[in-house]
Computed example of a mutant assay.
Amino acid sequence: MDISLHNLQSQALPPSTHLRIMTFDANNDLLWNGLVSASPQGSVFLRSDWLDMLRSTDKCGLDFLRIGYFDAKQRLVGGWVLPYRRLGGLRYAAVGFEFFYAGPLLLPELSCPTMHYSKERHTVLSGLAQMMRQETDLAVAETHPSLQDVRDFLYQNWTISPEYTHIWDMLEPDAILARMNREKRREIKRGMEAYQFAHEELHMQNFEEFIVIYQKTMRKFGWYPSSNWRDSLYQRLEWMCSQDGCRLYTARTPSGAMAAAVLVLLSREDQTVYLWRMAHDSDLRDSRVVPALYWWSSFAISQHEPNLRYVNFGGSPLPSLGQFKDYLGAQPIQHFRLIHRRPSVRLGLWRGVDQARDLGRKILAQYPWLDRIRIKGGGI
């Protein structure tokens, strides 16, 4: 259920000396990365170098709007960055962040909803909410699960939609197994006996194997990528793997065929392993391989790096997928989607164009020989 308070008057924007757009330069990047490292909402994906990587590997004009809130001592105590594209003079910050959460960041003392910093926290969040609303025509962002108090966005006329992710706490693997559905425990045990699991260094051959089964996996969710997406993904993977921010874990049959694979993202800032992209060869019709691969890769990472404590499964676009994660003993955790739309005719036209572009991608995916015909302005 979406929640909004459109009949409320927005709070006044804090003095402009506190809020500023942080351009991408060495000084601002240093300040920003410090906030990302300190904030409970921070993840490695929000670091300046990761944002630069996304921008440089995008072929459709992706950029980032980065806002900082500075206190009276000019400390950066809060911030927010969103990806956006421009079309017809409008700024659309609803293109989707590639890596999970891109919500507001707060220093630790402002993140905990206690009375001691209540005024400061509300002032910072209100300022960020209002400035992002003023600077964009359409904005959509998912908050980090650690940010549970989003009242200030309601007061600034944002729409709030509850979302859920699922998380394993690998500090207590026995507790996970105890919560897990009995059949899933059996599938993991038998899957680990039937397949060969490994962390594989990324190269073009296993990337091609991954892409083939990944595209088949995602079609059941109505997702059809453009050709640009595939090329950009490989560039991004090369960079992320070189930073040890991404790894490829595979499950192969005894003959060496890739039965399943998962690309995981490693964010040491929030102690989390993100199960980013899962590919499963549905032709095998084997329910054991995915649970076994999730468990094997998560356990292997936690044994090597105990500080990577949490495994985040991401959202569940289908009820059956959420139930699958429930059966795996993962805890459902609520977070929020923040939505701002500035009413305008041009915004309606843009949304129509975007829907037509998605339809075009589906047609191209169903008829590969048409892939030579590129849709102008198609997203990644």
Results as ranks from 00 to 15, higher is better:
Pro14Asn: 00
Thr17Met: 03
Thr17Ala: 06
Leu19Gly: 00
Leu19Asp: 00
Ile21Leu: 07
Met22Cys: 05
Ala26Met: 07
Asp29Leu: 02
Leu30Ala: 15
Leu31Asn: 08
Leu31Val: 02
Asn33Val: 05
Ser37Glu: 15
Ala38Glu: 15
Pro40Asp: 09
Gln41Leu: 01
Ser43Val: 10
Asp49Asn: 13
Asp58Cys: 04
Gly61Ser: 03
Leu62Val: 13
Ala72His: 10
Lys73Gln: 14
Gln74Asp: 13
Val77Gly: 00
Gly78Lys: 00
Leu82Tyr: 08
Arg85Asp: 02
Leu87Glu: 14
Ala94Met: 05
Phe100Trp: 11
Cys112Val: 13
Met115Asn: 13
Tyr117Lys: 00
Thr123Leu: 00
Val124Trp: 00
Leu125Asn: 03
Ala129Gln: 05
Met132His: 08
Leu138Val: 14
Leu138His: 15
Ala139Leu: 07
Glu142Thr: 14
Thr143Gln: 06
Val150Ile: 11
Trp158Phe: 02
Thr159Ile: 01
Glu163Cys: 11
His166Asn: 06
Ile167Trp: 10
Ala175Val: 10
Ile176Gly: 04
Ile176Arg: 02
Ala178Lys: 10
Asn181Gln: 11
Arg182Met: 07
Arg182Asn: 13
Glu183Tyr: 12
Lys184Val: 02
Glu187Gln: 15
Ile188Gln: 03
Gly191Met: 01
Glu193Trp: 07
Ala194Lys: 15
Phe197His: 11
Gln205Ser: 13
Lys216Gln: 14
Thr217Ala: 04
Arg219Tyr: 03
Lys220Met: 01
Trp223Ser: 10
Ser226Pro: 04
Asp231Thr: 14
Leu233Val: 10
Cys241Asn: 12
Gly245Pro: 05
Arg247Trp: 15
Arg247Ala: 12
Thr250Asn: 06
Arg252Asp: 03
Gly256Cys: 04
Ala261Thr: 06
Val262Ala: 04
Val262Trp: 10
Val264Asn: 14
Val264Ile: 14
Ser267Glu: 11
Gln271Ala: 12
Val273Gly: 07
Leu275Lys: 10
Trp276Ile: 00
Leu284Cys: 06
Asp286Tyr: 11
Ser287Pro: 11
Val289Asn: 11
Val289Glu: 09
Leu293Ile: 09
Phe299Val: 13
Tyr310Ala: 06
Ser316Thr: 10
Gln331Ile: 12
Pro332Gln: 04
Ile333Trp: 05
Leu338His: 06
Arg341Glu: 14
Val345Cys: 04
Leu347Pro: 08
Gly352Leu: 05
Ala356Met: 11
Ala356Ile: 04
Gly360Arg: 09
Arg361Ile: 00
Arg361Met: 11
Gln366Pro: 04
Ile375Thr: 12
Ile380Asn: 15
